[in-house]
Design a protein around this nucleic acid. Structure first.
Lengths: 253, 253
DNA sequence: TTATCAAAAATAATCGATAATCTGTCAATT
DNA sequence: AATTGACAGATTATCGATTATTTTTGATAA
């Protein structure tokens, strides 16, 4: 159960669900994207299904049902699930199979805390080392994000906004020149997005997230590390607190 | 090529090559360890083969040869390799298969830098939050490490020392109560061990590593965060510089 | 010689079927 | 009533074979 309601999209892969790929969606327009194999496509489909909340947290993933739901064979399914383990989206136990990683307040707390540390470290490095064009990338990502419509009634706009938001944060960090750190940040961002998309109906009224993003981007473009990192840290912290309160309401009713 | 010289151990799995399992080798004596499936055993065997340098850095992993070398079928082999991707020991490209992750000076630099940041963060948390018995665990791990023989002529003593060294560092951090952070640290430690085991013949004469470890442990047991973290940071930094110089000699001849 | 293209060979990816393991049920025993 | 053991059904793990893709080879033409 829980897998029956996954959208059974027939055919190779429709573009709509492709949008939020990690390495920067401006590349997605290119013909191929390098995700040719069933297993690789499945990784993205599963990631989306989990991050979006379609697959319930903590639920067992029945391989036979999942196999049907996604119209694939067992080998690529297992391989795709294995690749999601280190992302923290899937857990595994020998002879007991895979399950969707559970969510908890303490998990969210740690994610927030680590994002504060890691992302400010990466941003500081980026401000120190990134090439000049990075500033333009950041400004552009910000502009796209701020001009995107976000209509709670239209889920597609929310998804699109999420992708742009993710892009903005990653662009900000991309200049750091530390691939491992960037990978850790991406993982944490994934995990965080899952909480936001599952538990946050809308941002609380006393925040203007656009302004927060703009300030971070301004600081980055001006190469003012202290300012940019302080704003980024606040931004992450606020989002975390906000999410934690929503989660607490839902998880311990 | 490169896979042909992997020890072809027949039969289920002989204990000798099992020794340095990750979660603490004192547990290895227990009957089961939870690693029942071929895929899970293979993860450990492959990890050991890569970290120990048996599998050359950057080399392609020919699935058919690997399948023979490890006497397994394709499905568990692919699954095991997939699980090593996030550990940074294996890379993957669609339709081009898996390869052993390459090594580079810049990679080592980043590992060292991130270890400094992450491990001191974890240690600080541990000192603040770990339960009392943690101090004893640390002292015990230190004692085991310092009393272990390390004879360059006997590879098994080196391997044993590596396992104890790893144990010491992880015990130190284990008290932090942050599972994600601990996972990141474990990953970095894996990567670092690979460099040490591949490129470090012996520690340079002007260091007394035992003393360094002892000081860190003393600081931890005394709950003196500033002192312990400073010593830990120096320790990591020195190891990194030491390794980097050896690596530079070898990689750009 | 260099470039181009089409088989052929090598390799990776996937599938369907089988084997191994787990989970729940229910009767027999203590 | 609680425990044990054996069965059946469900699920996971593995295998061998097949299909798809990439890489190499070798012949031909510029």
């Amino acid at each position: 159960m829980g897998l029956a309601d996954v959208p059974k999209n027939v055919g190779p892969l429709e573009l709509a669900s492709d949008a939020p790929v990690s390495p920067g969606s401006w590349q997605a327009a290119l013909v191929d994207d390098g995700k040719n194999t069933i297993a690789s496509q499945l990784v993205e489909r599963l990631r989306e299904a989990i991050v979006s909340g379609q697959l319930e947290a903590g639920a067992r993933i029945n391989l036979l049902r999942a196999r049907q739901a996604f119209s694939v064979s067992l080998s690529p399914l297992r391989e795709a699930l294995a690749r999601l383990i280190p992302d923290g989206l899937v857990t595994f136990e020998d002879n007991r199979g895979y399950r969707v990683a559970p969510v908890s307040v303490s998990d969210l707390r740690e994610i927030t805390r680590l994002r504060e540390e890691f992302e400010t470290l990466a941003l500081r490095q980026a401000i120190a080392n990134a090439p000049p064009e990075w500033e333009g990338d950041v400004t552009r990502a910000l502009h796209r994000l701020n001009t995107a419509e976000r209509n709670a009634a239209a889920p597609s706009t929310l998804e699109h906004w999420e992708a742009l938001h993710r892009d903005f944060h990653l662009t900000l960090l991309a200049g750091c020149g530390m691939p491992l750190l960037l990978g850790f940040c991406r993982t944490l961002l994934n995990l965080n997005d899952r909480y936001r998309r599952s538990f946050l109906v809308r941002t609380s009224g006393d925040r203007n997230v656009s302004v927060e993003h703009s300030e971070i981007a301004q600081g980055a473009a001006a190469r003012d590390a202290d300012f940019a990192c302080a704003r980024l840290r606040e931004h992450i912290h606020r989002t975390g607190s906000n999410l934690a309160s929503h989660l607490a309401d839902r998880i311990a009713p």
